[in-house]
């Protein structure tokens, strides 16, 4: 299979973490601690703040979990002692003689789901970072096997949802593709801004913003802030505009301004513009956009 081409039959629902539904067994690959914080952090915090049971399978210190480590407002110990937060060490949840054991993982999962039901939690949120398991000997096959069991446990549930995490930097493209295929839901960060007309969401691979809806003068200020935050550190920045139905000239001018300021430190790339938008950019582009490029969404 050529690089970057998904099989024709693959189908995913893409959701932001705040839109996840009971029964979602979601896939999340991250490439930075910041990205993991955005998604898994929100998953944990939303659960703790809305009285869901939250289960994290990890050997990490509970105080160092996404959502709890950055801000000091939620105290891990309080939630642990109340039983709302459970942190299961790998040895307890899914290891047999130090090796990842899919059967044990699925059994543990069924067990915690049943317990959460007895404890009368409104919902259950489960997450684990599977990167270490994939990296073990024949890890990919074991994890794939496990995912089928997890899917069988979560998908029919009316109150449980799960996020399987993998550090993209530690996996090959083929491994990532194979693992992703075992999930029907891809989860990403919640939008930084959403007023029903425009949503602005941070993206991490490639780094930038996804713009959706309509961007005009009423939203220049929020767009300027988001653009500044993502361009201030330099490096290439991608603005995915595939789902942007409308952008006004003021916002295009702001993009050109940001692109010029970045100049030597990176490019501003407009990914997947509609033919109509491409035409506008090319038409007014002569003097305005020598720094602004049009791309296809692929990181170079």
């Amino acid at each position: 299979m050529p690089r970057g081409v998904e099989p024709m039959d693959s189908w995913f629902a893409e959701r932001s973490v705040g839109q996840m539904l009971p029964g979602d067994h979601a896939w999340f690959s991250y490439s930075s601690r910041e990205e993991q914080e955005q998604v898994v952090g929100a998953f944990l915090r939303d659960g703790l703040l809305t009285s869901d049971k939250v289960i994290y399978i990890t050997d990490a210190d509970p105080r160092d979990l996404p959502g709890l480590r950055a801000r000091g407002d939620l105290d891990a110990d309080t939630y642990l002692s109340s039983g709302q937060l459970a942190v299961l060490p790998r040895a307890e949840a899914c290891l047999t003689a130090g090796v990842f054991d899919p059967g044990r993982m699925v059994a543990s999962l069924e067990d915690v789901l049943a317990r959460a039901e007895r404890e009368r939690f409104r919902g259950v949120r489960i997450t684990a970072d599977m990167t270490w398991a994939v990296r073990q000997h024949s890890g990919q096959d074991r994890v794939l096997h496990c995912e089928a069991g997890v899917d069988a446990a979560i998908a029919p549930s009316t109150n449980a949802m799960a996020i399987c995490q993998v550090d993209r930097r530690s996996c090959t493209r083929d491994e990532l593709t194979a693992l992703k295929q075992t999930h029907e839901v891809l989860v990403g960060a919640d939008p930084d801004f959403d007023d029903g007309v425009l949503t602005i969401t941070r993206t991490y691979t490639p780094r930038g913003l996804r713009l959706k809806g309509e961007l005009d003068g009423a939203r220049h200020t929020v767009f300027a802030e988001a653009l500044h935050a993502v361009t201030v550190h330099g490096g290439d920045v991608h603005l995915n505009v595939r789902d942007l139905r409308f952008i006004d000239l003021g916002a295009l001018s702001m993009m050109a301004g940001a692109a010029m300021q970045m100049a030597a430190r990176g490019c501003l790339i407009l990914d997947d513009p509609s033919p109509d938008l491409t035409e506008v950019v090319q038409l007014v582009g002569g003097p305005m956009f020598p720094w602004l490029k049009i791309g296809n969404g692929e990181a170079p």
Partner: peptide, 19 residues
């Protein structure tokens, strides 16, 4: 007239006339 890319003043009306 095409705007000066460094200042972009007048870009709006010029864009309107281009479109």
């Amino acid at each position: 007239l095409p705007p000066d890319p460094l200042v972009r003043t007048g870009f709006g009306l010029w864009g309107v006339r281009m479109l």
